[in-house]
């Protein structure tokens, strides 16, 4: 019991310092610099389509990173809350998935490569072409079937990774704005059919 007692005493004594530390860590993700807009559509065959547009990207930072042989990435975490209201049942489904658009320069061909979820989408000869494609609205077919009766809530958590770091250096993402901008969760707006 004794050690529990002084552990308790230690907790009590260290609370002001711990509070400062907690406050610092909690404030870390609260430095968004970029803004974007998310919308979702339901295609004719009932599939959920998502679209995300970044209003402003720091081209110079991305270019510097890519030219130095690193990767830049737009990482979107979508959270889809699907409430189904049937005749006999009321159900809910919670889906979460990531969409990653990555840009890098192939060191062998010197071409600029654009990936979507690690799959090569396009290869470009010039930076301008790559950046145009990289910063263009990201349309993604989620493959989720939606019924007309479904009540849908879509949220997105965008992160712009200027310099993709391997573990354990990815811990540096915790430094606000240095290698990654962590935008807050935002709700997607329902758009019209394509």
């Amino acid at each position: 019991m004794q050690c529990l007692l002084f552990l308790k005493a230690g907790l009590r004594r260290s609370s002001p310092q711990a509070f400062l530390f907690f406050a610092f860590v909690l404030v870390l993700p609260l430095f968004p610099a970029e803004e974007g807009g998310c919308s979702y559509f339901i295609s004719e065959d009932g599939t959920l389509l998502l679209s995300y547009t970044l209003d402003d990207l720091s081209e110079s930072k991305i270019r510097r990173s890519v030219e130095q042989g690193h990767r830049a990435e737009i990482l979107l975490t979508f959270r889809v809350q699907l409430n189904t209201y049937g005749l006999f049942s009321v159900g809910g489904e919670h889906l979460e998935f990531d969409v990653r658009r990555t840009a890098y320069r192939d060191q062998i061909t010197n071409d600029y490569v654009l990936l979507l979820n690690d799959r090569e989408v396009s290869v470009y000869r010039t930076w301008r072409e790559l950046y145009r494609a990289f910063s263009s609205p990201l349309d993604y077919s989620s493959g989720i079937d939606i019924k007309e009766s479904d009540d849908l809530t879509v949220k997105v958590h965008p992160r712009i990774i200027y310099k993709k770091l391997v573990p354990p250096f990815s811990l540096m993402y915790l430094i606000p704005g240095k290698h990654m901008y962590n935008l807050p969760w935002e709700s997607a707006i329902e758009g019209s059919h394509h």
Binding site: F6, L7, A9, G10, R13, S14
Partner: peptide, 8 residues
Amino acid sequence: LLVAALIY
């Protein structure tokens, strides 16, 4: 906290 408890 453990360090604080130890120091205390």
